[in-house]
Design a protein around this nucleic acid. Structure first.
Lengths: 166, 166
DNA sequence: CTTAATTGGTCAGCATGGCTGACGTAAAAC
DNA sequence: GTTTTACGTCAGCCATGCTGACCAATTAAG
């Protein structure tokens, strides 16, 4: 890691600046997820449940395999979480219409309410940060985050967007 | 990507935009940490080891309690990780000079090499994203991330900066 | 000097949430 | 009719959080 010096408006790609980015990611993600953990603990749930609830709420009728692709965990791990969520009445399954092997996932009323409670908390944090930083900063934020993604993730996200706009 | 675009310079804090931020954080953090996990797996280590190595490398001579404050875990959890790292020769302890109860933490030669290998991987990812996005985007990225932090974390980070500049 | 507070380690036990391997079942595809 | 796909499930392993309790060395306060 060389100690490259900035010239004029050039980028500061010194180790120090890059480490700052790494640390900001670490702390921001920790604080961003930590807030929801409190609510989840009330219901004896963890982040795994949160992620499942979030993406089922985001893509109602998502298949198990699609959810697996998003979460990048094994089906055994997901299965444990999903069975818990169904037992507790947050999630229901319906057989697929075109392919009846599929079990399409939906949030129940209380699932929707719970998802909304969790997401609105995190959304408030983002809204405050966005408002404070301004439009241009938000744009830069999203640009950089997007460029931090693996190429696989990028195509995966745009695929989801396509599904969402059907 | 949502079809609705901001008009002029006004911020659109619609749910869609906020959810996009939430998801970008999730995926970016996943990809950002996932890369290092591969290397860590070779050495039979996990993220906990990575975090400890990173912050010891960042703040050589850090005390255990300071490291605990950064990581926000219990000393029992950290102790397990630290003993492993010392057993494997990545970390050493030295008694504090002013307060001999303290055990100041340092990376060994191989600890430094390993930290550098891990960090330079992540730094490369950041450098590429930063270069692609440009100075202004990077500034916005850092601004927004900073505003996503808890107030406690903000003061903690600036405190670390002060220590680093001694 | 004695006592209390601080710094840190450690043992025991528990929960969550990843993982693998193996096996089962229903439906679709060929 | 056989094979592949989509999904569930059982059993067990590992990493990494947690709590409570207890111990040792050292420092600070009375």
């Amino acid at each position: 890691m060389a100690d490259v010096k900035p010239i004029g408006k050039a980028l500061f790609l010194r180790e120090e600046e890059l480490r700052r980015g790494i640390e900001l990611m670490f702390f921001a993600y920790r604080d961003f997820t930590g807030e929801a953990d409190w609510i989840l603990a009330e219901k004896a749930m963890g982040r795994a449940h949160h992620r499942a609830i979030y993406f089922i709420g985001r893509h109602p009728g998502i298949t198990v395999s699609n959810l697996l692709n998003i979460l990048c965990i094994t089906k055994q791990s997901l299965s444990r979480v999903l069975s818990g969520l169904m037992k507790d009445g947050y999630v229901i399954q319906k057989p697929g219409v075109t392919d009846r092997r599929q079990r399409l996932l939906f949030l129940t009323k209380i699932g929707i309410a719970f998802e909304s409670r969790l997401t609105s908390m995190q959304a408030r944090r983002f809204a405050a940060a966005y408002r404070g930083a301004g439009v241009d900063a938000v744009d830069g934020f999203q640009q950089v985050l997007h460029r931090l993604l693996d190429i696989d993730t990028i195509s995966q996200m745009s695929q989801q967007d396509r599904l969402a706009n059907e």
